[in-house]
């Protein structure tokens, strides 16, 4: 192990305040060293949101080499750490994470995990998939995200699924215009058929320039009626 890496790791181990921990994790993340992967993964579980953000960024930057370790060490007891790990996997978009993300988006106990996974499913690195599996994977993702967008009980998870569907719609626009229409009609349906929603999220087409880079950028996810001001997220 290089001296540089070991001193960076030692700084994380020795940090005795949340500010020092954040700084140390930031430094080791910025160094972009594969040897730092275990330290970065451990930092997801320190209950220090700033450090976790830095660690996720570092892991995403490292990309493919971090995937196996992230999947092995998904913490099944600590939902906060698991949410950050799923976020890293989602950010990397490696095909090996697909099954994990599908399961997490549709069935995880924690809403942060479902939220991070739903968004990540839309932004998989589709060009990393083998040609014969890509289409099957996209079909699975489409089904899962349509399900989550309709069924999840938390507004933020449904919101995330819609963002995921938008990304997917862009990715399959040329290969599968039929899926794209399916996503469009789902959005239209959600815009009107949202009686039971905690947040009345609607979808409207024209006029917004929120996402100029995307063909579907004119989609708008929100029209919230006064009903939304009933406090719906607290318990």
């Amino acid at each position: 192990m290089s001296n540089h890496l070991s001193s960076l790791i030692r700084a994380v181990d020795d940090a005795d305040s949340s500010a020092l921990l954040l700084e140390a994790v930031q430094n080791i993340a910025d160094a972009c060293l594969e040897g730092a992967i275990p330290t970065l993964i451990a930092a997801l579980g320190y209950n220090n949101p700033g450090a976790a953000v830095a660690a996720v960024d570092g892991l995403v930057k490292l990309g493919e080499p971090a995937v196996a370790a992230l999947m092995e060490q998904l913490d099944h007891h600590n939902y906060t750490a698991r949410a950050w790990a799923i976020r890293a996997l989602a950010g990397i978009g490696d095909p090996r994470g697909l099954i994990t993300l599908l399961g997490a988006a549709t069935a995880d106990f924690s809403l942060s995990v479902r939220r991070a996974a739903a968004r990540g499913l839309g932004t998989m690195k589709w060009h990393w998939f083998p040609d014969d599996l890509r289409e099957i994977a996209q079909a699975e993702v489409l089904d899962a995200l349509l399900f989550v967008a309709q069924q999840d009980e938390e507004w933020v998870v449904r919101y995330s699924a819609v963002v995921g569907l938008q990304s997917l719609a862009v990715a399959i626009a040329h290969t599968h215009p039929d899926w794209r229409s399916q996503i469009q009609s789902q959005f239209e349906q959600m815009a009107t058929n949202d009686e039971s929603w905690a947040v009345r999220a609607g979808f409207a087409w024209p006029n917004s320039n929120c996402r100029p880079a995307q063909p579907l950028c004119h989609l708008m996810r929100f029209t919230i009626t006064p009903q939304a001001h009933r406090r719906s997220t607290g318990s």
Binding site: Y79, T80, S110, L111, S112, T233, G234, S235
Partner: peptide, 8 residues
């Protein structure tokens, strides 16, 4: 405080 619950 209002009860903004993250993870029930």
């Amino acid at each position: 405080m209002q009860n903004n619950v993250d993870e029930p």
